[in-house]
Simulated assay, not measured.
Amino acid sequence: MNHIEQKMYEYLNTHASNMTSEWINQAYTSGTGVYAQPKDSDVYSQLRLMNKQFCLTLTNNLFGKEESLQEWATSIASARTRTATPLYDVIVNFSIFRSIYYSYIEKFIEGNRDEISGNMVIKWVRIISKKFDKATQLVTKKYMDDYEYIFTSQQETILELGTPVIKVDKKIGIIPLVGEIDTYRASKLLETSLNKASEMELEWIILDLSGVPVLDTMVANQIFQLGETFRLLDISMIITGMRPEIAQTSISLGLDFSQMKTFAHLYQAIHYLRDNLTIVTN
């Protein structure tokens, strides 16, 4: 590091807190997430620390003291996803800080024009642009990875809650399906209901389709496979609410539901089981 670079290095580090304060004052928010908090809050105190650390890391990288942005980016992205801060806000605030950081480089160049060559300026701009781009990419990737994980986990929970196995007697359970059933939900139904039915030690499952408006061919096939799998576990499945069009779809697929009892209404299946089986109630 030559004399002017050392001088600039010290200048940028000395003004790191000032850059952070300017960024805090200009931080953009769309109204949700971490940036929507009061700027005198503990949240912003933490933002101030993280931003200053980023500033110092950038300056070290500018003058050959290579520091990885990976850990910092991971921390930032994870914090933003936890607080449901829009990714757009994160990227906009990166852009705001980039402008502030460049403005301090400009001030330094203006004050030391006689000692700085055009090649030096081009070099500095190239390095800083590369580091800002790298930081943005790292944060964006980690943010999207975390968001996808959270979204998938929430979807799994929703699907599980949307396919409950309700135990109505010691050996009887009901799966009341409501809403559209796509192939993914049908596959989760297969997995979830099998586990729950086994845990409950059920002998009969009533699959109620009366709340399902449409079943396509793939879903009808998966429901058939569900019944067959239950049978292998020595659990009998009764289907209720199967409308004529669903039955016709099944027949056209060559699905033989004759080994499963079907009823138009849920209460008919319950009456059938109560009349024909000895049920020991809980």
Rank of each mutant, 00 (worst) to 15 (best):
248 Q>E: 04
229 T>Y: 06
144 M>N: 14
255 L>A: 00
89 D>C: 10
278 T>K: 15
54 F>Q: 03
257 F>H: 01
63 F>E: 05
81 T>S: 13
136 T>G: 11
103 S>G: 02
106 E>A: 05
228 E>A: 11
222 Q>I: 05
166 I>H: 05
125 V>S: 08
267 Y>W: 08
163 T>K: 11
7 K>H: 12
198 S>Y: 09
275 D>L: 12
220 A>R: 00
199 E>R: 13
178 V>K: 05
228 E>Q: 13
180 E>W: 01
31 G>S: 07
261 K>E: 02
98 R>F: 11
19 M>H: 02
101 Y>L: 04
195 N>D: 15
231 R>G: 09
250 S>T: 07
210 S>K: 08
3 H>F: 14
248 Q>W: 04
182 D>C: 01
68 S>E: 12
277 L>F: 11
54 F>K: 02
82 R>H: 15
42 D>A: 00
62 L>G: 10
92 V>C: 09
211 G>A: 02
104 Y>L: 03
10 E>C: 06
77 A>I: 15
128 I>C: 06
142 K>R: 09
103 S>A: 04
190 L>Q: 05
32 T>M: 14
273 L>C: 06
222 Q>M: 05
234 D>P: 05
150 I>H: 12
107 K>M: 11
47 L>C: 10
46 Q>I: 05
73 A>C: 04
139 V>E: 05
70 Q>D: 15
99 S>T: 11
280 V>D: 11
273 L>K: 02
80 R>G: 10
138 L>V: 09
114 D>T: 14
254 G>P: 07
278 T>V: 15
250 S>A: 14
249 T>H: 01
175 I>H: 04
25 N>L: 13
118 G>L: 07
134 K>V: 13
156 E>F: 13
23 W>P: 00
231 R>W: 11
104 Y>Q: 01
135 A>R: 03
122 I>E: 12
203 E>Y: 03
240 T>Q: 01
241 G>I: 04
194 L>I: 10
42 D>E: 01
185 R>I: 09
178 V>I: 15
277 L>I: 14
55 C>I: 14
57 T>A: 12
104 Y>G: 04
160 E>N: 12
33 G>W: 04
253 L>S: 00
259 Q>T: 01
160 E>A: 06
89 D>V: 08
154 Q>I: 14
45 S>I: 05
32 T>N: 10
207 L>E: 04
134 K>Q: 15
5 E>M: 00
223 I>Y: 08
26 Q>M: 13
19 M>N: 00
177 L>T: 03
69 L>R: 12
97 F>P: 04
149 Y>R: 15
236 S>R: 15
128 I>H: 10
279 I>V: 14
182 D>E: 04
74 T>H: 10
125 V>C: 07
217 T>D: 12
121 V>P: 03
115 E>H: 08
186 A>G: 06
23 W>M: 03
191 E>G: 03
237 M>W: 00
184 Y>I: 14
253 L>Q: 03
37 Q>V: 10
235 I>V: 07
148 E>V: 15
270 I>C: 06
200 M>I: 09
123 K>T: 03
144 M>W: 12
202 L>F: 06
51 N>K: 06
264 A>N: 07
23 W>S: 01
149 Y>C: 12
85 T>W: 09
272 Y>H: 15
11 Y>K: 03
205 I>Y: 00
81 T>K: 11
19 M>G: 01
133 D>L: 08
41 S>K: 06
109 I>W: 07
264 A>P: 04
108 F>R: 02
187 S>G: 08
139 V>N: 06
115 E>F: 13
58 L>I: 13
154 Q>T: 11
24 I>Q: 02
